[in-house]
């Protein structure tokens, strides 16, 4: 039992480390197609992390919506726009060093704050299993207003995307 727990713990930490390596690939790879594939790996790793947190429905949604839909759209856009033949184009601007220093300072600041914060633990949510029907009741009961707002936003954004991307739409 103890050995099994240790194995699961090691597995979760290894998953986190692998996800971070792929995330570094997302921002540093020169070929944008490879960066998109690396983003897919990050999203799949996150879905596995959700499984470890007992959020099975969220893992399924992550795989279906992110890896299925968003990655496909991004890869389509890469293939429609990028000059595949030209490899010599500079992919990063000249702000790499200031950006790195600024991001490191921000990370140290936030990390110090969140390590000092005493996070309260609600014992009733610890290891609680949320079933899909619980989520559905919450969506249709307590959170019905944000749910409706999201649906209107979604339909508006999809119509807007079609209008923007249509040929000859600019006057």
């Amino acid at each position: 039992m103890d050995f099994l727990q240790l194995a699961v713990k090691t597995g979760i930490y290894a998953l986190m480390a692998g996800t971070l390596v792929f995330a570094l690939g997302v921002v540093t790879l020169k070929n944008l197609f490879h960066a998109a594939l690396s983003l897919a790996a990050v999203l799949i790793g996150t879905a596995a992390l959700y499984l470890a947190f007992h959020a099975e429905f969220m893992a399924a949604v992550q795989i279906l919506l992110y890896v299925g839909a968003v990655i496909t759209v991004i890869i389509f856009a890469v293939m429609l726009t990028e000059h595949i033949a030209e490899r010599s184009i500079l992919q990063h601007n000249k702000q790499s060093l200031p950006a790195l220093l600024g991001v490191l300072a921000l990370l140290v600041l936030i990390g110090k704050v969140l390590l000092k914060t005493p996070w309260p633990v609600n014992p009733s949510t610890l290891d609680a299993r949320v079933s899909v029907s619980d989520l559905g009741v919450a969506l249709m009961g307590t959170y019905v207003f944000p749910f409706e707002v999201i649906s209107i936003l979604l339909i508006g954004a999809l119509i807007g995307a079609v209008v923007i991307a249509r040929k000859g739409s600019h006057p």
Binding site: A55, V121, S124, L126, L135, A138
Partner: peptide, 13 residues
């Protein structure tokens, strides 16, 4: 949603 929230569904929603 698994540790500090009031109800376990909130974070997932």
């Amino acid at each position: 949603s698994q540790t500090t929230s009031l109800s376990p569904e909130t974070g997932q929603v």
